[in-house]
C-alpha cells in the first residue's frame, strides 16, 4: 500500500533501471577480455539522446509520436504494482498481476504500432517477431503466476510474495525452482536477450527488438530505451521475489546486480538461437511452469 518505503522502492527502480544494461555490457566486455563501457553508460546515452532533435519519418503519423510516451507510462504503472522482497508494492489488489501483464502488453502494442507506422520493412519484421514470440511466452508467465497463487493461496502479487517467505523450505523448493527456471527463460525472451535475441547484432535480418526500434531516434529512442530498461528491472524484481522472497530490499538490490552479471555471463557463453528454434524454447518454458505447478498442486491439496 502507498507508504514512504514502498514509494522509495519505486523511485529506486526508476533511478537505477538503466544501470542493469550497463552492468550486462560491462560483464560481457570483461569476459571477452575488453574493458568495456562504464556501467553508467546507459545514463549517458539517455541524456545524449534527450538532447537531440526528434527524427520522425515523413510516413509516420501521431501514433509514432505518442507511442513512446504511452508505452513508458504503461511500464511505470507496472512498476507501481511490483513488490520488493518483504516489502509490498506501492499498490496492491486482487488480480494486480493481470494489470501488470496488461500494462506490459500495452507497452509492447505501442512499440509494435510505432514500428509499423514508419512503413519500414525492417521495423515491421522486428514488430512481427516481437509480437509472435511474446504471444508464445505469455502462457509461461500466466502458468507460473498460477503456481505462485496455488502455493500461497493469495491473489495479489504482494500477497503471493509475502506468502512465499514462510513456505520457503526444502519441501516446496523443487516446484518453485521450476517456476523460477520458467521465469528466467521468459525474462530472457521478453527482454530481448540471448538466446532469443542478440542486442548487439548489426544484421537487420536477424534482429528482433533492435529492428523494432530501428526508426526511433533522439528523445523517442530515449523513452523506448528507458522503458526497456524498466521492463528488465520489473522482470528482475519478479525473479528476485521468487528466489529471495524472505529478504529485505537491500538483498533484492544485490540480487538484481548479480542477475545482471548472470545475464552477461550467459550472453558471453552462448550464441543466439536460430529464429525457428525460439518457439520451442518458449513452449518449453510453459512446460516447465506447468510441471512446477503440478508439483505445487501435490503439496497443496
Amino acid at each position: 500500500m502507498p507508504s514512504l518505503g514502498t514509494g522509495l522502492n519505486v523511485l529506486i527502480g526508476l533511478a537505477a533501471a538503466p544501470l542493469l544494461p550497463g552492468i550486462i555490457a560491462r560483464v560481457k566486455a570483461m569476459v571477452a577480455g575488453r574493458r568495456g563501457p562504464p556501467p553508467l553508460q546507459g545514463y549517458y546515452d539517455l541524456i545524449r539522446l534527450l538532447h537531440k532533435d526528434h527524427l520522425r519519418s515523413r510516413t509516420a503519423t501521431w501514433v509514432f509520436g505518442g507511442a513512446p510516451a504511452v508505452g513508458l507510462a504503461a511500464v511505470v504503472c507496472g512498476l507501481l504494482l511490483m513488490p520488493v522482497g518483504r516489502q509490498p508494492a506501492f499498490f496492491s489488489f486482487e488480480g494486480d498481476w493481470m494489470v501488470l501483464l496488461g500494462c506490459l502488453a500495452l507497452a509492447r502494442w505501442c512499440a509494435i504500432l510505432a514500428a509499423l507506422d514508419t512503413g519500414s520493412g525492417f521495423a515491421a519484421m522486428g514488430a512481427s517477431r516481437d509480437a509472435c514470440f511474446s504471444a508464445l511466452a505469455e502462457p509461461a508467465l500466466f502458468i507460473l503466476l498460477a503456481g505462485l497463487a496455488r502455493q500461497t493461496g493469495e491473489l495479489s502479487l504482494s500477497g503471493m510474495v509475502a506468502g512465499l517467505a514462510p513456505s520457503a523450505g526444502l519441501t516446496d523448493a523443487p516446484g518453485l525452482a521450476l517456476l523460477a527456471a520458467a521465469l528466467g527463460l521468459a525474462l530472457l525472451a521478453e527482454n530481448a536477450r540471448i538466446p532469443v535475441d542478440d542486442p548487439n547484432t548489426h544484421l537487420e535480418l536477424t534482429m528482433i527488438h533492435e529492428a523494432l526500434v530501428l526508426e526511433q531516434a533522439g528523445p523517442d529512442l530515449a523513452l523506448m530505451l528507458y522503458g526497456a530498461a524498466l521492463k528488465l528491472w520489473l522482470f528482475g524484481l519478479l525473479l528476485m521475489n521468487l528466489l529471495v522472497a524472505f529478504a529485505d530490499s537491500f538483498a533484492v538490490w544485490c540480487g538484481m546486480i548479480l542477475m545482471a552479471a548472470g545475464i552477461g555471463v550467459v550472453e558471453s557463453a552462448m550464441a543466439r538461437l536460430r529464429l525457428l528454434k525460439v518457439p520451442p524454447l518458449l513452449v518449453g518454458a510453459a512446460a516447465l511452469a506447468a510441471l512446477g505447478f503440478a508439483l505445487i498442486w501435490r503439496t497443496t491439496p
Partner: peptide
C-alpha cells in the same frame, strides 16, 4: 506524458524512412 512530450519536445526533423 504524451502532452508533456508534445509540448516540451525538441524540434522535429522529418526525413524519409530508411
Amino acid at each position: 506524458m504524451v502532452v508533456w512530450s508534445a509540448m516540451h519536445g525538441r524540434p522535429v526533423v522529418r526525413p524519409a524512412t530508411w
